[in-house]
C-alpha cells in the first residue's frame, strides 16, 4: 500500500513549502526582505492580545461563511454568490435595527431580531441564485456573480440614498446605532464578542454533525456525487440543491448580521469585506471536509490581520496575505490532483 498517511502528509507539507517559496520569490521580485516580511506577518497576527482578538473577530464571519459553503460544495454547487448573500444579510439586519430602533423593545430582542432578519435575507438571496439555476437553467456561478453586483449596488444605493446620514452621505456608511444595541464585547475597547465566537463555533459544529451523521447530509453527498443515481434512489434532487443554497445563504446572512451588530454597528459599503471569496478558498483548501475547516479559517484570518501592518512597517502592500493564501490554495489543489492521479495508477 503506497497510499499511507505519511505520504499524504508529505504531500501537504510539500505544498505549503512550495507556496512559501513562491511567495518568497514574489517578495524578492518586489525587492522586499522576505524574512522581515514573514516576521512582521507573524507579529501582526500574534504579537499582542489586541491583534489576537482582531484575528478572532475576522475568524467569526470567515468560519460562518465556510460552514455554509461546505454544504453547497457537498451538493456539487459553486456558490459564488456568497458575497452578495453576506451583503444582503447585513442589509436585512440593518433594516431590522432601523425599524426597531425607537420601538422600546429590549435591546437583546432587537439584536436577536436583527440576526434573524440577516439570516432570512441571506437565505432569500441564495435561493434566488438557486431558483435561477433550477428553474432558469442559469449556471450558479454566473447567477451568483450577477447577484453579487446587484447586492453591492443595492447596498450603495441604501447608504447614499434612503439610509444616508442626515446631511451628507458618505463612504463611512449609515449612522451608527445606539451603543445599547451593540453586541456585548469582552471590554469596551475590543470588538471581540464572545457571543459571535460562540455562534461561529456552533455553526461549524452543526455543519460537521449534519454531514457526518444525518440523512440530510448523506443525501446532499449523494446528490453532489451523482445526481442521476441520487434521483433514482428516491432523493428529490433539486429540492436538496435549493435547501443547501438556502442554508448556505442563512450562514452568510448571519455573517453579515454579525458584521453589522458587533463589528461596524452600521451598514458600510464594503460590508462583506471579501469574506465570501476567502471562505471559498478555505472550503477548497480543506477539500470540503468540515473537521479541519475551523483551524484553517483561523490561519487565513491570522494571515489577513497580520498583513495589515505590512504597509506601515515595510511599505509593502497588505495584499501579500492574499498572494500567500491564493498560492496555497492553488498548490494544494495541484497536489490533490497529483495524488488522485497517482492513486488511480495504483488502481485504488
Amino acid at each position: 500500500m503506497r497510499d499511507s498517511r505519511p505520504n499524504r502528509t508529505l504531500l501537504q507539507i510539500g505544498a505549503i513549502a512550495l507556496a512559501l517559496l513562491f511567495t518568497t520569490f514574489v517578495l524578492l521580485a518586489a525587492k522586499a526582505p522576505p524574512l522581515a516580511a514573514y516576521l512582521n506577518l507573524g507579529l501582526g497576527a500574534l504579537g499582542s492580545w489586541e491583534v489576537i482578538s482582531n484575528v478572532l473577530v475576522s475568524w467569526v464571519p470567515l468560519l460562518l461563511v465556510t460552514s455554509g459553503l461546505l454544504l453547497t460544495f457537498t451538493v456539487g454547487l459553486w456558490n459564488i454568490g456568497i458575497e452578495g448573500q453576506i451583503t444582503v444579510g447585513a442589509i436585512f439586519s440593518t433594516w431590522a435595527f432601523r425599524l426597531l430602533l425607537g420601538s422600546g423593545m429590549a435591546p437583546g430582542l432587537v439584536i436577536l431580531a436583527a440576526f434573524l432578519a440577516g439570516m432570512l435575507g441571506g437565505a432569500l438571496w441564495a435561493m434566488l441564485a438557486g431558483a435561477l439555476k433550477t428553474f432558469g437553467g442559469v449556471n450558479e456561478i454566473f447567477g451568483g456573480l450577477g447577484l453579487n453586483f446587484v447586492a453591492t449596488a443595492l447596498n450603495l444605493w441604501l447608504i447614499f440614498g434612503p439610509w444616508k446620514r442626515p446631511g451628507v452621505a458618505s463612504m463611512s456608511g449609515t449612522v451608527p446605532f445606539d451603543p445599547s444595541l451593540w453586541l456585548p464585547t469582552l471590554n469596551p475597547q475590543s470588538r471581540l464578542s464572545p457571543i459571535a465566537v460562540g455562534i461561529a463555533v456552533a455553526a461549524i459544529l452543526v455543519v460537521y454533525g449534519m454531514l457526518r451523521g444525518t440523512y440530510f447530509g448523506l443525501r446532499l453527498k449523494a446528490v453532489g456525487k451523482n445526481p442521476r443515481a441520487a434521483f433514482l434512489l428516491g432523493i428529490p434532487t433539486w429540492q436538496y440543491m435549493m435547501a443547501s443554497f438556502a442554508l448556505c445563504g442563512l450562514f452568510a446572512g448571519l455573517a453579515g448580521a454579525v458584521q453589522v451588530a458587533s463589528v461596524y454597528h452600521r451598514l458600510i459599503p464594503s460590508i462583506s469585506s471579501g469574506y465570501g471569496y476567502m471562505g471559498l478558498m478555505v472550503a477548497m483548501l480543506v477539500n470540503y471536509k468540515a473537521a479541519i475547516a475551523a483551524p484553517v479559517a483561523l490561519f487565513f484570518a491570522a494571515l489577513n490581520v497580520g498583513s495589515i501592518q505590512l504597509p506601515i512597517v515595510l511599505q509593502l502592500d497588505s495584499s501579500l496575505a492574499g498572494v500567500l493564501q491564493g498560492t496555497l490554495v492553488l498548490v494544494v489543489l495541484l497536489a490533490q490532483g497529483a495524488r488522485t492521479r497517482m492513486l488511480k495508477k495504483e488502481g485504488l
Binding site: 453527498k221 449523494a222 456525487k225 451523482n226 443515481a229 441520487a230 433514482l232
Partner: peptide, 8 residues
Amino acid sequence: EEGLVPGL
C-alpha cells in the same frame, strides 16, 4: 453512471 453513487 445511474445506479450507484461512486465515492459512497
